[in-house]
């Protein structure tokens, strides 16, 4: 499965986000309707480390803006 599709599946199944409101460029954190929080970000970091061997610990929040930016960081660092 494509990287972005796998990230979306993880965010929906584990973090409880409805698939029909989540596009690859949808804002994930802050005032976005998705409204993920700091614990959710740790789950994403753990998932990315476990699945792709890419450690996003301490990475700037601009890389967590959306599925697009997370995928781009993984591609650039794996």
């Amino acid at each position: 499965m494509e990287l972005k599709a796998k990230l979306k599946e993880f965010i929906c199944s584990t973090l409880g986000v409805e698939a029909d409101v989540l596009e690859y460029d949808t804002a994930l954190f802050g005032d976005s309707p998705i409204g993920l929080d700091s614990v959710d970000s740790l789950e994403i970091i753990s998932y990315v480390d476990g699945e792709y061997g890419v450690d996003m610990t301490g990475v700037g929040k601009e890389h967590f803006q959306s599925i697009d930016t997370i995928a781009a960081y993984i591609e650039a660092n794996k």
């Binding site: 740790l42 789950e43 970091i45 753990s46 998932y47 990315v48 480390d49 476990g50 996003m56 610990t57």
Partner: peptide
Amino acid sequence: TRGGAGVFS
């Protein structure tokens, strides 16, 4: 079930 990046589930 999961243990990446210092987070353990």
